[in-house]
Every structure is written in structure tokens, then in C-alpha cells.
Design a protein around this nucleic acid. Structure first.
Length: 489
DNA sequence: ATCGGCTCGCGCAA
DNA sequence: TGCGCGAAGCCGAT
């Protein structure tokens, strides 16, 4: 099929052909939870028009995935409400939200729906339970199953190489990204279904797996009936595409101009706050990029720009805009590059050799402060900066980006082994952070243990040559007073 | 306030 | 084969 979605973003997950007698193309939305700027949805629309059917959009929310809690459910449900409103009354498309009530209740839904489908298109996301779920689905589905990468500006499988540093990845992007900037997803892919009839969800399917539409609002405010972790409460920040866009506008209007100077200052509100939305797919990197470019009055022109991996000067935008794009593109997408190519990206053994070597050299060093997981979780350490950062994470589902590094460095220092440090970081990050369970969770966590970094001297206890950070120098360097006050016990 | 040193691996120029 | 350079490090010298 002729497609506007780049081939490098599309993977056939099985050998099957489309079922020409299917009644609809099925888009199984799992990671890019939005109806706009979404290559996967766009691809599903292409199949619908190609095979002359409508499109069914299934957005499912399981209750038995690891770390399922009121916090993440609420965020996803906010998004479902937005999807419902965005697709209501659009021709050719039916939105079918499903919220699983008991573990395993959703089993069989996809396969059953696929029996009536021409093809199934889904989201290609390289970590958490998604890759395993995709493989399992491929075995159970008799029609063509495609996974489409709409994660970032550069396709996560755009190169076979795995980049060991942001610097080398940036240098690669400076050569390889420009053509991809011209291949953006349609802003409103569903528009191409104009004039078509919206498909009906088969009645037998609805009997077993009821449409959650009538319950979405109730669920968003009361999750007590679901078997998920009610101890991790909903965050104050709302999920969904509408909230994501509103945060983007706020960021462009104010903090962006201070981004380069102040993003590391906990007392300033200079960070984008977009990572939860990017994680759940409530906003696309393409849309964020386009908004920044528009604000900067920027059009692509890379003639004569340096391509040596330098952090500034390549885009030809303002200093703060370039600093932000280095986070949004280089740092965000280097994590997708790693996760897409290395199934072991969550494991300690994926650290670079020099890091594992130096940490092993210091395995026997004395560790004067040791805390178990729940002391960390409850912010009961001797260090008030660390405790404040952890309280912010627990309460708000986000942590200030600079303190997030210090937070991890101290967990390394205060656990029995670097392996235990990694597992504590993974547990806390994925349990509490809205942007957890993401390729960049592992980039950030393992950065604290040397990934994407280089050795630093002098060699220190426990850390060895891993870059050391201390609360004392953080307190000296940063404006923190209000932050410590706000997140005091 | 600013600077060099600490230390390793990469990719590119030569 | 050599060289430059790198997420935000720290520390001590100037």
C-alpha cells in the first residue's frame, strides 16, 4: 500500500494478509493516546480508505499492569474523555474505550475484535510491557498486525546503531534528522475518513467487554472499585490532550524564554512540564516541535550549520529554544534508540563497561547510610533536600529535573549495591512518576550510574569514577529555599 | 568568579 | 594513531 507514513516507522508483526471481508480497520491505541499528529492512527486511516471501510479505535486500559494505580488510571481516563470528545460525531470512526475491571477480564477482546477487522494497527513503544504484549498479540491475531512508531521526530529504528552518548547521537541527528523533519504526521488524520460510515462494535463483543463511555466521568473521580493501587493517589495535574496543549501554550508563553538559564533552579518554574503528556502520548513530539518552531519564526535551513555534535547553533534558533530542543529531541530520543535496540536496557548489565568496572571495584566500600525501600519511599532519610524531592515525587507525580539526578546519585550512595540502587530507583520512579515506565526512565536512572556519561575524578568511595553529586554543593549552587519549604514534612 | 584536573571511549582527521 | 570532546560533577588554586 502507498503510505504517507515512512516505511521505517512501520513494522509488520505477523505474516498475515489483510482480511478483505473485514468490516473495519482496527486501531489499537496503547501508547499514542491522542487522535492528532499520530502516525499509527494515520496508518490505520490509510488502511480504512484503501479497503473502503470505517475505522474502529480501541483504547484499552488494563488494571493488572505493574504499578497500576489511581494516579496513572486517572491520567489515562482524562485522556479517554478527550478522545471521546474529539471523535464524537466525526464520520467514519467509532471510538471504543474499554476499562478492565478485574485482572484478565480484557483477555480475548483484541482477538475477538480482530475477527471482524481487515487489519489491526497499533502503537510501537519500546519498553514496559508493550513489546511482550505486541508479540503475544501477533500470535493470536489472524489478520495483518502492524506496529507504527510515532514516538519522536527521528524514527527509533532509523539507524541500527546504538548510541553510547548524547554527543554521538546528536552528531548523528545533525546529519540524519533533516529529511525526517519534512515527514510529519497529519494534524488530523481522521479527516480523511470524511463521508464514511462509522463502524459498529459487534454486539457480542460489547456484551463481554462493555463500552466504558458512559462510565468515563464517574471513573475519573472514583476508582475505588478497581483492583489497582489506591495508595498512589491521583496527581493534581490533569491528563489528556487538552491539558497537554494548555501546558504547552503556557510553556511557550513564559518559561521557554528562561529555559536555558533557569531550568535547573528548583525555585523557578522554568521547565516544560510536558514529560507526563509525552509519556502517555497525550501530545506528540512533532506538535511540540512545530509549536516551538512557529514561536521562533523558524524554517528549516541547515546550510553551513555545524554538525560536530555541538549543543548549540545547529537549529539556528534562540538559545533557550535550542536548549529545550536538545532535551526534547537529543535526550528524549537517545533513550528510544537504546530501548528499541536493547531488550536489556532495563538491566544493570546494560551499563557501559567502565561504569560496571568502577562500581565493582567499590562494591566493598563502607556505606555509612543505608535505607530500605520504604524509608526511601516515605522520604525518611537524613537529607532534607533528598526528602523534599521524594515528597514532591510522591505528592505530585513529578520531580524537579536537576534534583532528579541528585536523587538517584544518593540512592546509589545509600544502598548496599549498585544493583539494589537501580532496583530502588526503578521501583520508586515507576510507582510514583507520571512519566515513569518510559525509555527515558531508564536513561535517567542509569545516567546516575554512568550511562551516557564519562568517568570523573577524583575516585570516590562507592561511586568510583561515576560522576559524584552532593546535596551540600547543590544547596550552595541552587535557589532552593521555597522548594524546601513547599515540600517540607 | 573562573579555571584546570580528574578519566574513558568515540569518531573523525590524518 | 592522535586528538578533541563530552547533561548539569567536585575541589582546590588563583
Amino acid at each position: 500500500m502507498k503510505s504517507a507514513v515512512p516505511d521505517v516507522r512501520t513494522r509488520a508483526m505477523n505474516e498475515s494478509d489483510p482480511n478483505l471481508s473485514g468490516r473495519f480497520a482496527l486501531y489499537w491505541m496503547t501508547s499514542f493516546r491522542r487522535t492528532e499528529h499520530n502516525f499509527a492512527l494515520q496508518r490505520a486511516v490509510e488502511w480504512a480508505t484503501e479497503l473502503d471501510t470505517g475505522l474502529l479505535v480501541l483504547e484499552a486500559l488494563r488494571c493488572d499492569y505493574r504499578w497500576a494505580s489511581d494516579r496513572f488510571h486517572r491520567f489515562v481516563l482524562d485522556g479517554m474523555q478527550d478522545q471521546l470528545e474529539a471523535l464524537e460525531g466525526r464520520s467514519g470512526v467509532t471510538y471504543y474505550p474499554y476499562v478492565e475491571e478485574r485482572p484478565g477480564a480484557g483477555r480475548g477482546l483484541l482477538a475477538e475484535l480482530a475477527r471482524s477487522a481487515t487489519v489491526v494497527v497499533t502503537d510501537d513503544f519500546p519498553t514496559f510491557f508493550i513489546p511482550e504484549m505486541l508479540r503475544a498479540a501477533a500470535d493470536r491475531i489472524a489478520v495483518r498486525l502492524e506496529a507504527v512508531d510515532s514516538n519522536g521526530l527521528y524514527p527509533m529504528r532509523g539507524t541500527e546503531k546504538v548510541y553510547p552518548s548524547a554527543y554521538t547521537f546528536r552528531r548523528h541527528l545533525q546529519k540524519a534528522l533533516p529529511p525526517h523533519l519534512e515527514r510529519t504526521p497529519d494534524a488530523d488524520p481522521v479527516a480523511k475518513l470524511g463521508g464514511r460510515t462509522a463502524p459498529e462494535v459487534p454486539a457480542a463483543v460489547l456484551r463481554q467487554w462493555p463500552d466504558a463511555t458512559p462510565r468515563l466521568r464517574t471513573l475519573a473521580s472514583d476508582l475505588s472499585d478497581l483492583p489497582i493501587d489506591h495508595g498512589v493517589e491521583p496527581a493534581e495535574i490533569r491528563g489528556g490532550v487538552t491539558a497537554a496543549r494548555s501546558r504547552l501554550r503556557t510553556f511557550l508563553d513564559h518559561p521557554l524564554s528562561r529555559y536555558a538559564d533557569d531550568r535547573n533552579q528548583p525555585d523557578e518554574d522554568a521547565s516544560s512540564g510536558l514529560s507526563p503528556y509525552l509519556h502517555f502520548g497525550h501530545i506528540s513530539a512533532h506538535e511540540v516541535f512545530a509549536a516551538v518552531a512557529e514561536r521562533e519564526g523558524w524554517t528549516p535551513d541547515f546550510e553551513g550549520r555545524p554538525t560536530q555534535g555541538k549543543r548549540t547553533g545547529w537549529w539556528g534558533m534562540s538559545v533557550p529554544a535550542e536548549a529545550f530542543l536538545d532535551e526534547l529531541v537529543t535526550w528524549r530520543e537517545v533513550g528510544f534508540n537504546m530501548a528499541a535496540h536493547r531488550p536489556d536496557h532495563r538491566e544493570y548489565e546494560s551499563l557501559p563497561d567502565w561504569a560496571q568496572r568502577t562500581l565493582a571495584d567499590h562494591a566493598g566500600d563502607p556505606r555509612p547510610h543505608l535505607y530500605p525501600l520504604d524509608a526511601f519511599a516515605n522520604a525518611r532519610t537524613h537529607d532534607e533536600i533528598w526528602n523534599a524531592a521524594q515528597r514532591q515525587l510522591r505528592r505530585e507525580g513529578v520531580m524537579h529535573n536537576y534534583l532528579r539526578m541528585l536523587w538517584g546519585k544518593k540512592i546509589l550512595e545509600w544502598t548496599r549495591s549498585p544493583r539494589e540502587a537501580a532496583s530502588v530507583m526503578i521501583e520508586l520512579n515507576n510507582r510514583y512518576a507520571l512519566d515513569g515506565r518510559d525509555p527515558n526512565s531508564y536513561s535517567g536512572i542509569y545516567w546516575c550510574l554512568g550511562r551516557y556519561d564519562r568517568p570523573w575524578g577524583p575516585e570516590r568511595p562507592v561511586f568510583g569514577k561515576i560522576r559524584f553529586m552532593s546535596s551540600a554543593s547543590t544547596a550552595r549552587k541552587l535557589r532552593l529555599r521555597e522548594y524546601l519549604e513547599r515540600y517540607s514534612d
